[in-house]
């Protein structure tokens, strides 16, 4: 299955988003990662790489990210990782829920999951 990683500046936010997305995720591997490694707000490439590797079972990983440095550090992590991973250009919570649903499709691919995550950009709430 395509795996998912949720990167947030806050470890608790990442865990919370995963908690919500996991309701729809079936058996999908979905890993939260966040924080500066010192208990503070931030993101660290090595930690993200570990999450990417943990989410990967050879079918690739879609990475959802929150703000600025999460994108850059996820980029670095993907370069460091052996897994085939891509960042979805999507809002982190809605994208994670969409991706979780998409990943449960038996015919899901890395591209289809990313596309569904990115479809969350156009979601209207009212």
């Amino acid at each position: 299955m395509v795996g998912l990683v949720v990167v947030s500046h806050s470890e608790r936010a990442a865990e919370g988003i995963v908690e919500i997305a996991a309701e729809m995720a079936g058996d999908t591997r979905i890993e939260p990662v966040g924080g500066d490694g010192q208990g503070g707000i931030g993101t660290v490439p090595d930690a993200i790489r570990e999450a990417v590797d943990a989410a990967d079972d050879d079918e690739g990983v879609v990475v959802l990210v929150d703000l600025g440095s999460a994108v850059m550090n996820a980029d670095v992590a993907i370069e460091l990782s052996d897994a085939e991973a891509v960042i979805a250009d999507a809002p982190v919570l809605e994208g994670a829920v969409n991706a979780a649903v998409a990943a449960t499709d038996p015919s899901a691919t890395l591209d289809s999951v990313r596309e569904q995550a990115e479809a969350a950009r156009g979601m209207e709430k009212l």
């Binding site: 924080g35 500066d36 490694g37 010192q38 503070g40 931030g42 993101t43 660290v44 490439p45 090595d46 600025g68 440095s69 850059m72 550090n73 980029d75 670095v76």
Partner: peptide, 9 residues
Amino acid sequence: AEVGGASGP
């Protein structure tokens, strides 16, 4: 590894 923000990369 140590910066924990955008300044790292």
